[in-house]
C-alpha cells in the first residue's frame, strides 16, 4: 500500500498511508476509535472509494475481480441476513463462493455456533450475530482474512478460542489482518500496525515495539509512542 489517501464526506480519513502486511501471519491493526481502521480495511477489500495512492493485495490491485474469491471480509457490524437462520445465511454465501456444504458446518463449529445453526439470526445475541458474520468469511478457504473487530463483545473463553483459530489459520499459510481496540489482543498478533488519526504511528512485532519504547504493557507502548510523536 503506497500513499493511500481516503476522503469520506468532507474529512480526510487516511493521509499518505504506506504500509505492507506480511503474508502467513496475523497482523493486528490497532488504534483509537475513528483512527481509520475500518476505512483502511475497506480499502484493502476494495469496497472503499479512494482519493489517491495504490493498494496491492496478493499481487493484484485491490478490488480486482479475481481477488473476490481470495479474500474473506468481516465488516464491523454483523453483515448477515437477520431473517434467515445461521445455516441458511452460510449456505447462501457458500453457494456464491462454490464452497461445499461441509465447509458450512465446519465454519459454524469453528465459531462455536453449532447449537444455534438452525436459529434465525435476528433473534441471536449481538456476540452470536458477530460470530455468524465471522463464519461466513471462513467459507471458501480465502488466502487473506480481513476481520474488522471480530471479537467485540465476546466472552474471554471464546475470544481465546477464536485467537487460537486465527493463529492456526496463519500457521496453515493464511494471512490475517485483524482490527481491535483491545490491547491484550495485540499480544496474540505476530505483527502490529498502530494507527492514529489516519496515519501510521508505528509498526513491528510486539517485541520490537516494546524494545523501542522500553515499556512492558502494550498499552504503555502505545502511550509512549503517542507522547514521542
Amino acid at each position: 500500500m503506497r500513499d493511500l489517501r481516503v476522503v469520506r464526506g468532507r474529512a480526510v480519513v487516511l493521509e499518505r498511508l504506506s504500509l505492507t502486511v506480511a503474508r502467513g501471519v496475523v497482523t493486528g491493526l490497532l488504534g483509537p476509535s475513528g483512527s481509520g481502521k475500518s476505512t483502511l480495511m475497506r480499502s484493502i477489500v476494495g469496497v472503499q472509494r479512494v482519493a489517491g495512492g495504490t493498494v496491492d493485495v496478493l499481487g493484484e490491485p485491490a478490488g480486482a475481480p479475481s481477488l473476490r474469491r481470495r479474500i474473506g471480509y468481516v465488516t464491523q457490524a454483523p453483515s448477515i441476513y437477520a431473517d434467515l437462520t445461521v445455516r441458511e445465511n452460510l449456505r447462501y454465501f457458500a453457494r456464491l463462493l462454490n464452497a461445499s456444504l461441509e465447509q458450512v458446518d465446519e465454519a459454524i463449529e469453528t465459531v462455536g455456533l453449532g447449537r444455534h445453526a438452525g436459529h434465525v439470526v435476528g433473534r441471536l445475541s449481538g456476540g452470536e450475530q458477530a460470530r455468524a458474520s465471522l463464519a461466513t468469511a471462513l467459507l471458501g478457504s480465502p488466502e487473506l482474512l480481513v476481520l474488522d473487530e471480530p471479537t467485540v463483545g465476546l466472552d474471554p473463553l471464546l475470544r481465546r478460542d477464536l485467537w487460537d483459530t486465527f493463529q492456526r489459520l496463519a500457521a496453515a499459510g493464511k494471512s490475517l489482518l485483524v482490527s481491535s481496540h483491545v490491547m491484550d489482543e495485540a499480544e496474540r498478533c505476530d505483527r502490529l500496525l498502530l494507527l492514529r488519526g489516519g496515519r501510521l504511528l508505528a509498526w513491528g512485532t510486539p517485541a520490537e515495539l516494546r524494545e523501542r519504547t522500553h515499556a512492558q504493557a502494550l498499552d504503555d507502548v502505545f502511550l509512549r509512542l503517542i507522547e514521542a510523536q
Binding site: P65, R69, T75, A77, S79, I80, L97
Partner: peptide, 13 residues
C-alpha cells in the same frame, strides 16, 4: 443498511 450489500460486493457475484 445492514452491510450485506457491502459483503456481496466484495464477493464473487
Amino acid at each position: 443498511v445492514s452491510g450485506t450489500l457491502e459483503r456481496l460486493m466484495s464477493m464473487p457475484i
